[in-house]
Design a protein around this nucleic acid. Structure first.
Lengths: 237, 237
DNA sequence: TCGGAACCTGACTGTTTGGTCAGATTCCGT
DNA sequence: ACGGAATCTGACCAAACAGTCAGGTTCCGA
C-alpha cells in the first residue's frame, strides 16, 4: 500500500482532484492555515487571520472547509505524509552509516525547509495528539517497530554499538525537530535574529556526530568520498 | 546574585510573602493554571477551567491575578527558575562524566516529575517565546555561554571528545524534554497508556548512553561504584 | 470584642469567535 | 450564447470569552 493510500485510509478519504479553481484556492488556504496554526496553535489561530493571510473573505474558507476543525485536519494530513517519509533507506541490508546519515540529513532538511509543518505537528503532540492519536498508535508505531527491528539486527550483527532502536528514534526526532520547534530559543541562545544556512550546516554536523558516535560509527565517514554539498535551503523563520 | 533575585529582576518583582490565606490560594491557583496551560496552551486555556480546577469561582482568580496574562507570567516565573537549575556541577574542575551524568539525570527527573512545567515552557518557546524572549536572550544565553566554555575547555584538555558545547545543550534539552513534551507520541509508539517508572529508567539510560558516547566517555562508568537507585518518581500523565 | 483590612462571589458586560445564509457573480461544457 | 453548476461574499447570529463590580463575609491585630 502506498504511503498516500495509508494516510488516506487512516484519515478518511477526501474527494480527489477537483476543479482547477478549487485546487488553487484549497492550496492557498492550506498554506495560510499552516502558517497561522504554527504561530498560534489550534485554539489561538482565528479563521479571520487565516482568511486574511490567504487573501480571501472568511466565508470562502467555509466554502472549501466545513469547519475550523476540518481545515486543521487537512493541514495535519499533509504534514503526516512528510513525517513517515525518508525511512526507506533504513533496511537491514543497508550500510548503517550511510542510511543513518541519509535519514538525519532528511530530518534536518525538513526542519529547515518546513518549520511551520514541524511546529504544527509539535503543537498537536504537545497538547495530547487528540486529532492524530490513531495515526501515532497505528502507522507510526508500526513504522518505528519495523525500523527498531532493523537497528536491533544491526546491533546483533555487530555492525553498530548496542543501542535501543526505539529510543534512538525519540532522540533523533527530538534533536532534529528542536531546530524548528524551538527556533526562538536557539536564535536567542545563538544571539541571532534567525538561523542562517551556516548554522544549519553546523547543527546538521553536530546531530550527525551525536548519532554516529552513539552507534559507534566512524565520523566523519572515511570509507566514502565526502557527500556533495547540500541543496540550498530556506532557513528563514 | 541569587537565582531567585535574577528571575525577580528580569520579570519584575511581585510583592513577597503575603498573608497565610493568600499564599495558599495563590499556590492552588498557580498549580491549577500550570496544569490547564500545559494541556491547552495559553490561548486554549480558559479562566473558567482554571478556576474550576483550582476549586474557586472565577472572580477569585482576578482577585489574586489581575489578568490571564499576569497569571500566565506567574506560572512561567516558577518554571524559569527550574530551568536554570542543576547546572552548577558543570565546571571546568569537575569530572566530565560525573557532571554530565548528574545534569542529564536532573533533566530527566524534571521531565518525569514536572511534565506540565516542561509543556508550558515548550509551548511558550514553540509559539515564539513572546513572554520570555528577554529571559532567553539574557539569563539563558549567558548560562549556555558559560557552560559551553566549560565543554570547550574539557575538549581542549582532551578530557572529552570534540563536540560543540552549545549544540550539545540543544541536543541534551531536546532529548530529555521530549519525554515530557511529546509524551503522547512516546506512549503511542510504546503502546502504553502512560510511561512507567521502568520506561523512565530505560529512557534515562538511553539518553546517558547518547551523551556519554557523544563525549567519548566510558559508559556505564567503570571507575566508580554504581549510583544509588533513583528516587521514586511520579511518572503519571 | 471591635473595626478596618483582606478575602470572596453572583450577576453582569463588551468583545471576539466560529459559523450561517441568501443572493450575486463567474465558470465552462454543450 | 446559453444554463446549470461552481464559486464567492456582505451581513448577520449565538456562544464563549476575559474582565468588572457592588456588596457580602471572614480574618486578625489591638
Amino acid at each position: 500500500m502506498s504511503l498516500r493510500a495509508i494516510i488516506d485510509k487512516s484519515l478518511g478519504d477526501r474527494p480527489a482532484a477537483k476543479g482547477r479553481i478549487r485546487q488553487r484556492q484549497e492550496g492557498a488556504i492550506l498554506k495560510a492555515a499552516e502558517k497561522v496554526f504554527a504561530r498560534a496553535g489550534y485554539q489561538g489561530a482565528t479563521l479571520n487571520e487565516i482568511a486574511e493571510t490567504a487573501g480571501v473573505p472568511k466565508p470562502t474558507l467555509h466554502y472549501y472547509f466545513s469547519s475550523k476543525e476540518a481545515l486543521y485536519r487537512a493541514v495535519l494530513d499533509n504534514i503526516l505524509a512528510l513525517w513517515l517519509a525518508e525511512t526507506d533507506t533504513l533496511t537491514v541490508d543497508a550500510d548503517p552509516a550511510a542510511a543513518l546519515e541519509h535519514y538525519v540529513r532528511a530530518k534536518m532538511r525538513l526542519s529547515a525547509e518546513r518549520p511551520d509543518a514541524s511546529r504544527v505537528f509539535a503543537n498537536e503532540i504537545l497538547h495530547g495528539a487528540g486529532h492524530i492519536g490513531y495515526f501515532l498508535r497505528s502507522e507510526l508505531r508500526e513504522l518505528v517497530r519495523d525500523r527498531a527491528d532493523v537497528i536491533a539486527r544491526w546491533v546483533a550483527d555487530g555492525r553498530i554499538a548496542p543501542v535501543d532502536g526505539t529510543h534512538l528514534f525519540f532522540t533523533l526526532w527530538a534533536a532534529t525537530q528542536t531546530y524548528a520547534d524551538f527556533d526562538s530559543q536557539i536564535c536567542a541562545v545563538l544571539g541571532k535574529a534567525r538561523q542562517t544556512v551556516a548554522d544549519h550546516v553546523r547543527a546538521t554536523d553536530h546531530v550527525l556526530t551525536v548519532v554516529m558516535r552513539t552507534c559507534g560509527l566512524p565520523w566523519p565517514r572515511t570509507d566514502v568520498p565526502p557527500t556533495l554539498p547540500e541543496a540550498r535551503h530556506t532557513c528563514s523563520t
